[in-house]
């Protein structure tokens, strides 16, 4: 993350299990999306799920993976500023990002 002075600092992500860690320990897992029921979805709904992604800038809910511990979690990230707003485990209490 570049600062105004030109100095760079390490980007830190807070893993809900392991706490604050450098970005290098994480992999991005894509947008959080709900899969339609394959048995009842129309072809259009299924094609939309498979091929289309939400491209509008804003606050996004994304899957992230802490590689050393094997922890998947959800992060809310503002992709206009690249700031992590909060992170939390799927179906669990949220914690500060």
């Amino acid at each position: 993350m570049p600062l105004r002075s030109g100095i760079s600092i390490m980007k830190i992500i807070t893993c809900p299990i392991n706490g604050p860690r450098p970005l290098q320990e994480f992999h991005f897992g894509g947008e959080v999306r709900t899969m339609p029921d394959p048995n009842s979805a129309t072809d259009e709904q299924w094609a939309d799920y498979v091929f289309n992604r939400e491209g509008e800038p804003g606050l996004k809910r994304e899957w992230w993976y802490h590689v050393p511990s094997g922890t998947w979690f959800i992060a809310e990230r503002d992709n206009r500023t690249d700031e992590f707003v909060r992170t939390f485990l799927y179906g669990a209490e949220e914690c500060d990002g």
Binding site: R21, P22, Q24, E25, H66, V67, P68
Partner: peptide, 22 residues
């Protein structure tokens, strides 16, 4: 990337050493 001066003894930290998960 972990400051082990602040880590509790006998508690495992999963992180990377020389870029390798451990």
């Amino acid at each position: 990337g972990i400051n082990f001066r602040e880590v509790t003894s006998r508690k495992v930290v999963f992180t990377r050493v020389a870029g390798v998960s451990c």
